[in-house]
Amino acid sequence: MQRWSEEVARDPRSLAFLPLARAYRKQGLRDASLHLCLRGLEAHPAHVEGHGLLAMLYLDDGDHERAADEWSMVLRVDTNNFEALRGMGFCYLEQDRLSKARQMLERAALLRPSDPTVQEALRVLGTRQEIVEKGLSSSADPAFGDDPWAVPTGEPVFMFDAGTEAENAGQQASSPAPEAMPPAAAPVSRPPPAVPITGPLPLDPTLLFDDLLNAGPLLAALLVDVNGMVLAGRLTEGVRGDPAVLGAVLGGAIGEATRTAHHLVLGVWRGILLDSEHAMLHLAPAGSDAVMVLAARRDAPAGWVLRASTHAVGQARQFMEEYA
């Protein structure tokens, strides 16, 4: 942060404004982040990520209108920006502009078919359209009340998580999430099934572990070969980074673990649990030439991560057999 800060102080046009503003937001320094972001956008008015961050800052304040303005700016520059499409979809949904909301959310769903927040928004949208078609006003629906962002009791929550925007990479946001949205720590951790789910595998290998990724505090689930190449899986929405990089750097640990277990006469290694500053990681061999990498939020229970890994390894083996 100090480096970015010095850079911005030295050159107000520096693009370091973005990581610094993100860091400020993460620390709950909302005003400083907003100020920095606005100043940065003065110098770089078409900076997509800058507008995206500004939208999140407005959203943090519950100012959905301004957030939507910023996302529309993003979409002018980058018509396929997932975050902006999703955000705009939510804003339109909030305003009961249902056809516009569907347009945005369906485009977002095309980009990331497995995103649970988009799927959930589309479901809510469907419910509302049904109500409208039956001649009832959506605002009359007691389940939604006055605030269309509010989630009715018993409804699955929107996982539109202001705290897990790209830069957070597994950290919880220190700034409070909007009231109607669940805070970053809120996602429900369902225990992973004890045995792997058998059945048809998804055609898209990136979706292979989506049952886990959508269920709990996971940031990433990747199947990586001995050369560090990603075979299947993905990072969760909002996690910064490139799965290929994650696979490559962690894949290198396979040989190290094998060597250690062998020379310490510990037999076959079954896993490595890494407790890092921002995340908990688990690596487990999946067959003789691949490793399963799970990354979870720092506060994830270690036991849950271990079980999730066992489950994922089962899926990975099935995948490897199928596509061998």
């Binding site: 597994g170 990089v245 750097v249 673990a257 076959v268 890494l274 990354a295």
Partner: peptide, 27 residues
Amino acid sequence: LFRRTAAASETADFGRLNTLQLEADDG
């Protein structure tokens, strides 16, 4: 093993490695 995984953790932006646990059949 610790050094290598710590470097990987930092490269992947997961921050400093605090604890490593290697699980194997015999220990």
